[in-house]
């Protein structure tokens, strides 16, 4: 039971949209760069003084896209492509589910989804080891 409800606090819209419109303009600029030069860009949302209304406006304008992904490493990272292809929303959570950092990434695919080069090599080795083990097991059964 929290006594907070008893406190007469009203939240009234300060007017304006916080920084949402500025962020949307920046996304437009970054997207233009991606289209014309192929350079990727991103915006650090956690460093901006965004009000809940600004967040809503941002989410509303960008919409939902086709891809949703979840990366489990050092807590969860939720990635989804917005309704604007090439604009991704990346939220890093820690193990307590608090937001560690939040980015808008303007890219063909966010880096966190790509398998790192070294991991591919490690993977190949791991697979070979597993196949070798299986072969050994088979031959020992025969």
């Amino acid at each position: 039971m929290s006594g907070l409800d008893g406190i007469g606090v009203k939240v009234i819209d300060a007017g304006g949209d916080g920084s949402a419109r500025a962020v949307l303009r920046e996304i437009e600029t970054l997207l233009t760069v991606l289209v014309e030069k192929g350079e990727e860009g991103s915006i650090d949302l956690s460093s901006l003084p965004l009000t809940p209304e600004a967040y809503d406006l941002l989410e509303e304008t960008l919409g939902e896209g086709e891809v949703t992904a979840e990366v489990s490493s050092l807590g969860v990272t939720r990635v989804h492509e917005t309704g604007i292809p090439g604009v991704w929303w990346v939220t890093h959570y820690n193990e307590d589910d608090d937001v560690m950092a939040e980015f808008i990434e303007v890219t063909h695919c966010p880096e966190i989804l790509l398998t790192p080069e070294d991991d591919v090599k490690d993977g190949l080795e791991a697979l070979r080891a597993r196949l070798f083990e299986e072969n050994m097991n088979k031959s020992s059964v025969e």
Binding site: S46, S73, H92, M100, A101, F103, I112, P116, D119
Partner: peptide, 22 residues
Amino acid sequence: VSRRAFLKFCAAATSLMALPPT
């Protein structure tokens, strides 16, 4: 800590240092 986790760590650290995400 995997490399992806390291990447995530670096993204958060960059944000923490108030550096541009690039």
